[in-house]
């Protein structure tokens, strides 16, 4: 294929898109909407994965001691905790400190101790951090075996629930995208079929004067690619606009929420969206070329 023929193909593709404006815009909008949904679902999945990993890395085990243990015995226990394999850090939190921490969560007008009837119900406790998140359940079990330990709490279940949510989001996202993506492909195919129909006279003459099949096909193929690509660009632009807003607001207001703000990962998502959009366009035009452009 000559360079000038590619130039002709681009010119013809744009010309026919201009002629079929409404159909073409509908196809672009559908591609954009489906990719926007895909992008949202994708970012949600990435965020909940990110959140799960952040929470996993912060996993700590709280070991509450029996109330009859003396302070001295309690402090001596530290070595027992440190002897457990995989433990990174062991902190003793006395019942007084525990109460202070609790008090800090309420405003100054409320006196927790008074509300509790002057009795501190909190036990002494140890906070154990694991070196690796995967070790947390095993360490928790060993901590439980220490006789002085009344009970053990760690974030069991939370991470699992988050990962389950991630999987669910992923499935729903894929299904929704498949359905709308199919609609997008169909619209692209229809829009190109209309173009083929509008240009059937030209196609007839082209064949007679000796245009190759691919010379005839290229403008239609390009039309599909352009529709898909433009739709994807629109989706990426709006997704970027909304997401950067969201990140901005989350950081300002609820900054403990670990939102994903790693540009290289987000750009990676954008690149894929552009690729998928162009691919949808290619599929749409391939369908209509096969079915309606028997050259």
């Amino acid at each position: 294929m000559r360079l000038s023929s590619l130039e002709y193909a681009f010119r013809d593709a744009f010309r026919s898109m201009k002629r079929n404006k409404v159909m073409c815009l509908a196809a672009i909008a559908t591609v954009a909407v489906s990719l926007l949904i895909l992008g949202c679902a994708w970012l949600l999945v990435l965020n909940s994965e990110h959140m799960a990993s952040v929470m996993e890395s912060e996993l700590e085990i709280n070991a509450y001691l029996r109330s009859e243990i003396t302070r001295e015995d309690a402090l001596n226990l530290k070595r027992k905790f440190e002897a457990i394999g995989g433990v990174a850090q062991v902190t003793f939190i006395s019942k007084e400190e525990g109460l202070k921490n609790l008090q800090e969560r309420f405003d100054e007008d409320t006196n927790i101790l008074e509300a509790l009837g002057g009795n501190n119900p909190l036990p002494d406790m140890y906070r154990v951090k694991a070196k690796i998140a995967d070790d947390v359940p095993r360490i928790a079990m060993e901590v439980e075996k220490i006789p002085e330990v009344e009970n053990v709490r760690y974030g069991q279940g939370v991470v699992e629930k988050l990962l389950a949510l991630t999987n669910w989001l992923r499935t729903v996202g894929v299904v929704v995208v498949l359905v709308i993506g199919l609609a997008a492909v169909f619209l692209i195919a229809t829009s190109i079929r209309l173009t083929v129909f509008a240009r059937r006279r030209e196609i007839g003459i082209m064949k007679l004067v000796g245009a190759t099949d691919w010379y005839i096909r290229w403008p239609f193929f390009l039309e599909g690619l352009i529709v898909g690509f433009v739709g994807a660009v629109l989706a990426v632009l709006s997704l970027h606009f909304f997401y950067s807003r969201l990140v901005h607001n989350v950081i300002l207001t609820v900054n403990f929420l670990p939102i994903l703000n790693d540009l290289s990962i987000i750009v990676h998502v954008y690149k894929w969206l552009l690729f998928i959009g162009t691919f949808l366009g290619a599929v749409g035009s391939a369908i209509s070329l096969r079915r309606f452009l028997k050259v």
Binding site: M1, R2, S4, S5, I205, M206, V209, A211, Y215
Partner: peptide, 11 residues
Amino acid sequence: AFAMEAMEFPR
């Protein structure tokens, strides 16, 4: 020109 383009003559 249309016919010449279809025969892939350069511009």
